[in-house]
Write a protein that binds this DNA or RNA. Sequence first.
DNA 1: CAAGTTATTTATGAATTCATTTTACGATCG
DNA 2: CGATCGTAAAATGAATTCATAAATAACTTG
Lengths: 246, 246
Amino acid sequence: MNSATVQHPAPQTEPTPVGNGAAPQGGNSLHDEVLVRLRDYIVEGNLEDGARVPERQLCDMLGISRTPLREALKVLAAEGLIDLLPNRGARIRRLTAQDIAELLDVMGGLEALAGRLACERISDDEVAAIEHLHHQMYGCYLRRDLHGYFQCNQAIHHHIVAAARNDTLTASYAGFANRIRRIRYAANLDRKRDRWSEAMREHEAILDALHRRAGAELSDLLFQHLRNKQRAVISHLTDGPALQPD
Amino acid sequence: MNSATVQHPAPQTEPTPVGNGAAPQGGNSLHDEVLVRLRDYIVEGNLEDGARVPERQLCDMLGISRTPLREALKVLAAEGLIDLLPNRGARIRRLTAQDIAELLDVMGGLEALAGRLACERISDDEVAAIEHLHHQMYGCYLRRDLHGYFQCNQAIHHHIVAAARNDTLTASYAGFANRIRRIRYAANLDRKRDRWSEAMREHEAILDALHRRAGAELSDLLFQHLRNKQRAVISHLTDGPALQPD
DNA sequence: CAAGTTATTTATGAATTCATTTTACGATCG
DNA sequence: CGATCGTAAAATGAATTCATAAATAACTTG
């Protein structure tokens, strides 16, 4: 970890300091940090769809050798973020319209589950926190702050999932959210008014059901909410620009 | 792949022929084959819970070097099958009662989704195939063939998931099923009569709803089915021996 | 001049090597 | 006699090296 005590002669390229100032996040060793950094880098959309990712370049960029990098690439491939072609390197996974539709359906299923479980387990404080986010989101909606709206919306959904108190569910949901986040960024560029207000209304109903701890109803609302989003995204991708905020 | 054309002098240990006679399954290269073999080996319960898995031993067993093995281990850790402790090697992941409860809830959520989607998309032929499996399973139930029942039951659930026509869902479901399969094997040893007949009745209702393409109803039936199973498994794990067949 | 072919360069797959950390064993001391 | 410390052996993390497959460039030929 200490760049002063490298075992072998360091590569001629100046090694980028691995830690970006932050403390060791969740990772075990150097390899995990590479994994986290690479995942974030991809998820945030820094690489084009289908772009070739030469190992050597990434090694220089991260200041490590190919061994830990390839381990990280294997994991990212297993997570579905990249494709690993036999003797031809890694490519950023290109999401087809069907991929996106499938992902949103699965996330809908998981959120539906989360809603059901959350109603059994959520505390009043947690509901209040979500309600606060909801009001905040409404403010963003009123002043047409799409980015803020987006952040609040995402936070609300993650809070509901977290309230289910199921770490397996949380991790799985986060994985799918990662896979689709690049798209969400892209979709974020444009906005379609009618879907936006529709999404707001759906969120009102979701919050109401959560208040009443109406598990089955909330479950259905969340699934339909994702289904509507799916419809909007898919029509955007096929028909052309004009998009949903949620 | 050809063991006669190894590049470097082969290790002194006789390399186990990598291909177990089967054709290249889904894997790309040697590394993927190792991954598949290791995963199967673990999933089928050949290793004790929490057992240490020395890299060297596995290398000799598979006749490969540590590099591709470690890549496979990283993937298996990401899949949740093993734990990778910082400087202390790999251990078979020990599933707590909570882990199992969480897994069954998530699988219930995914099956609920699958049921909903399947009702929109399933063909008459597929329903007929599932019905056939159901009758076969009923036969196993009558003659107390727990193993056969188990196989049929698993096949039915996988068929329903497949009928949802969502590869993302299918892959995710298979991953969770893998994580819990070891437990199912263990649970398979004992049988508890009343849960068995209860599960049979639930399956009757599931098949009926599928026939009628009653998506919402099927969705709920599948979730409750898994919830009941969860209850049975957990009580088995905490109270002691006596178990559910499904 | 264009198309096919071959040689060169580059990148990937996998084994080996080196350094560090952990674990096991044995000696010494209380 | 038991416990603790120190040393040796083993295992892991990571870099390097070697061989092969792919991509590119140059060359030849029709």
